[in-house]
Simulated scan of single mutants.
Amino acid sequence: MSNDIAYPVFRTPDPALALSTARSLVEFGRRGYSRVSVYAEFHSVAEVWEVARELPTGWFRGREEYGEFDGVPLKDCPPLVVGVQGPGLPADPAAYEGRLPLEWELLDLPVGSIEDAFTAAIGLSRGEINWEVLCWPDAPGAGFHGESKHAEVTLLFNTTTRDLDEPADDHTVLLHVRSVLVDGRQRREPYAHWLADQSGLTVIGPGQR
């Protein structure tokens, strides 16, 4: 079993520029079967309702307390906890008490189908666009074979971490490669540098696992 590591290669306060830069990197490895997923966290009811209007097919899921629904049949759990699309969200703000932040996602979509709308809707919330099932080429001059299993690009909005746990005023593009850790060093980091350079980018920070 192998894991990936993601290197930041671009950062900007301009979401449109961040998206266009991420797309240029995606196109370098895109195949007909490549896919895209989007995910975000919303900390207020107003944010939730706004995104539900703009992107109603996305799935929302709220927090639950540990053991809150132990022994409760799934059909009897609140839709907001089980997962609900925009049109099914509660209209009463009180229903969101104890459930925020809400997670929101749309998964495994065709590339180009959701990115613009998501970028326009994310606002100041934290979230990500992740392109996967890409294929990075061989770099024979650098001594690296290509990559498919861990060939991904992620665009982070309003955060610099894959866990979305550190708010930021800008947006970061991450380039993923296979993690090969030997004696405390990432042996495929030079490959990430090579890939970034092919798209006119530069690795600007340490990798994130």
Rank of each mutant, 00 (worst) to 15 (best):
F42L: 13
T119R: 00
P87G: 13
E41M: 08
V45A: 09
L25D: 00
P167R: 12
L102D: 06
W194N: 02
H176K: 06
T12E: 05
H43R: 14
G184T: 09
V38D: 12
T172R: 10
V182R: 05
V177Q: 02
L109F: 06
E132P: 00
W131P: 09
D14R: 01
A6S: 13
S44L: 03
R185T: 15
P167I: 11
G143V: 04
P167S: 09
W194H: 11
A142H: 08
R209A: 04
G205P: 12
L80S: 04
T154L: 13
G184F: 14
G88I: 10
E166N: 01
Q208W: 08
L134T: 00
A196H: 05
I5S: 02
F157R: 08
G184M: 09
T161D: 09
L124G: 13
I122T: 11
E54M: 06
V48F: 05
A142G: 08
V36H: 05
V84M: 08
G29I: 04
Y96C: 11
V9A: 05
E41K: 08
A91W: 06
Y191K: 01
A16I: 04
W104L: 09
V84E: 10
Q208M: 03
I114D: 01
G123W: 12
V111C: 07
L175V: 11
V173R: 02
E27Y: 03
L174P: 02
T202F: 09
Y7F: 15
T21Y: 07
L19S: 12
P73D: 15
E115V: 02
R11G: 00
S199Y: 04
H150I: 14
A95G: 02
D163E: 13
L155G: 00
A16M: 04
S44G: 15
I129M: 03
E65L: 02
L181I: 14
